[in-house]
Computed example of a mutant assay.
Amino acid sequence: MVNNASVVAAGLSLVGGAIGAYFFWPAAAGVAGVAAAMKAPGAAGFLISRAAFLANPQLYFQILRTAGAAAAAAAFAL
Rank of each mutant, 00 (worst) to 15 (best):
F24L: 13
F61I: 02
F53E: 00
A21N: 14
A75C: 13
A51Y: 10
I19F: 11
M38Y: 11
L47A: 02
S6Y: 13
A36P: 00
G11P: 01
V31R: 08
N4F: 14
A36L: 05
A73Q: 04
G17R: 09
P41D: 03
F76Q: 03
A71Y: 05
N4V: 15
F61L: 04
N56T: 00
L12F: 13
F23M: 10
F23D: 08
F76C: 06
A27N: 08
A44T: 05
V31F: 05
I48W: 01
A70W: 14
A35H: 14
V2M: 15
A52Q: 15
S49T: 05
A67K: 15
A9H: 06
P41F: 01
S49H: 08
R50A: 04
I19A: 11
A35L: 10
G68R: 00
Y60Q: 05
Y60P: 05
S13Q: 15
L64W: 00
I48Y: 00
K39F: 05
A77T: 07
P57Q: 04
R65H: 12
N4G: 14
L54Q: 15
A9E: 09
A29R: 14
F61P: 02
V15L: 04
L59W: 04
A21Q: 15
A72C: 09
A69Y: 00
G45E: 09
V15K: 01
A40E: 06
L12C: 13
Y60G: 06
A75V: 07
Q62M: 14
F23Y: 10
G33T: 07
A51G: 10
A35C: 11
A32R: 13
A74C: 02
A71L: 10
A70R: 15
A32P: 04
L54G: 10
Y22D: 07
A5G: 10
G33V: 07
A70Y: 13
G68T: 01
L14K: 05
A44L: 05
S13R: 15
G33P: 03
N56F: 00
V7A: 12
A72T: 03
A18M: 15
A27K: 08
G45T: 10
P26F: 02
F46Y: 15
P26K: 06
A55F: 08
A72I: 04
A73Y: 02
G45I: 08
A35W: 11
A75F: 12
F24T: 09
F24R: 12
L14D: 08
G68K: 07
A28R: 11
I48V: 08
A44V: 03
A73E: 02
V8M: 12
F61M: 06
A43Q: 06
G30M: 12
F24S: 12
L78I: 09
R65E: 12
L78S: 09
A32C: 14
L47C: 04
S49F: 03
L78M: 14
A75E: 13
A5R: 12
G17D: 09
I19D: 09
I63N: 01
S6A: 12
V8T: 10
A72K: 03
L47P: 02
V15M: 05
Q58L: 08
L64P: 00
G33R: 07
A69K: 01
A74Q: 03
P26I: 03
G33A: 09
A71M: 11
I63A: 00
P41A: 03
V31K: 10
A21G: 12
F76R: 00
A32W: 12
A27G: 06
